[in-house]
């Protein structure tokens, strides 16, 4: 009875096509799920790994980094170049130059993990766009932390006895304290 089987198969095949059509029709009646990116943006989760950035100590207003270079040594692609000086009045060295080659960074987090003084963290910045390669080859993280430190000291006129407002803490991911990376170069 191969003819009957053939007819039956044809019928079942046709039915499967109708089922498929019903599913796409049902999906078409459901709301849109895409995010209209430039107009809508997503909030990055707390553990999001953007490019690294230096952390400002909310107590003193200085970078926490002690220029121990452990991060530079731990980096698999050697994309961190940093230097530190011993400033007057300080007991320890502090960072004076911190450059990240973001073109080779693989965002593995080894540097953040190894840092003994919690001086590096991931930014929540994902709009990392530039017209200029140099923006990423030599990302000057020190200049950013310096600007943050200036903003901090502007917000905290001496004497710094009063407890610092939490808004100045760089741990807040939404604070637009750092220079936006997508500012057109030049």
């Amino acid at each position: 009875m191969s003819l009957i089987t053939a007819i039956r198969e044809t019928f079942l095949g046709f039915k499967s096509l109708l089922v498929g059509l019903r599913i796409t029709a049902r999906e078409a009646s459901r709301p849109i799920i895409t995010v209209q990116y430039p107009r809508e943006t997503l909030k990055m989760p707390a553990r999001f790994r953007g490019h690294i950035k230096l952390v400002l100590d909310p107590e003193t207003g200085k970078p926490r980094c002690t220029a121990c270079t452990l991060c530079a040594k731990a980096c698999p692609s050697g994309c961190i170049v940093l230097d530190g000086v011993k400033r007057e009045g300080d007991k320890k060295k502090s960072v004076s130059k911190y450059e990240l080659d973001f073109t080779t960074c693989s965002l593995c987090g080894s540097c953040v993990e190894i840092c003994p003084s919690d001086a590096i963290e991931f930014s929540k910045e994902y709009n990392v766009v530039s017209l200029n390669r140099d923006t990423f080859e030599n990302m000057d993280l020190y200049a950013k932390i310096e600007a943050e430190a200036r903003a901090w000291s502007a917000a905290h006129p001496a004497p710094p006895a009063a407890s610092p407002p939490p808004a100045a803490a760089p741990a807040n991911p939404t604070a637009p304290a750092s220079q936006p990376l997508n500012a057109p170069a030049g």
Binding site: T24, E27, A28, R30, P31, I32, I33, T34, Q36
Partner: peptide, 13 residues
């Protein structure tokens, strides 16, 4: 647009 609706995106907009 139809493809967009079926795939639950807005299509060219």
């Amino acid at each position: 647009k139809g493809a967009g609706r079926i795939q639950r995106r807005p299509g060219p907009n």
